[in-house]
């Protein structure tokens, strides 16, 4: 079993552009900016749609489902006291070219991780809700 992340969470500085993303977990939903004209998800947030140059962008909830595109097991003690943890790169199902660097949690083995289906789970630190991801299968087990 790997740790769910480093021993200490370094946190984002919230501003008017990123607050919706980092606080979405309060409502249990993952949100991305979406273009009102061409419906493209835009990440990281910028005030223009890179696809159509439209400026009608607003945060929109997505399903929270994703697929593991890549991962690495970190062993180095960049952050002292950390046990090995899994850094994942997760594609969002609604638009796979939008990816999040994240932690894959409740992860027992690295076999077959790439390509596996995951869903978001949030970890709260003050006003910040970090989007982490767990295997869809293992979450079913833990809910049963």
């Amino acid at each position: 079993m790997f740790a769910n992340g480093p021993s200490i969470r370094l946190l984002p500085r919230l501003d008017d552009d990123n607050r919706f993303f980092w606080t979405g977990g309060k409502d249990g939903v993952l949100r991305f900016l979406k273009c009102g004209s061409c419906h493209q998800l835009v990440h990281p947030p910028v005030p223009v749609c890179p696809a159509c140059l439209g400026k009608d962008l607003a945060p929109e909830a997505v399903s929270g489902r994703g697929r593991v595109h890549a991962y690495t097991v970190n062993h180095q003690q960049w952050i002292p006291g950390s046990e090995p943890y899994v850094i994942g790169l997760v594609e969002i199902v609604e638009q796979p070219d939008v990816r999040l660097t994240t932690n894959l949690v409740d992860c027992e083995s690295e076999d077959g991780l790439i390509g596996s289906d995951v869903e978001v789970t949030f970890e709260q630190h003050d006003e910040v809700f970090l989007p982490l991801f767990r295997s869809v299968d293992s979450s079913k087990e833990s809910n049963s």
Binding site: G5, L10, A70, Q76, I79, I87, T101, L130
Partner: peptide
């Protein structure tokens, strides 16, 4: 926030 704190991690992906 996810402990991906070095280019080593980003390149490892």
């Amino acid at each position: 926030p996810f402990g991906a704190v070095s280019a080593a991690n980003w390149i490892a992906l």
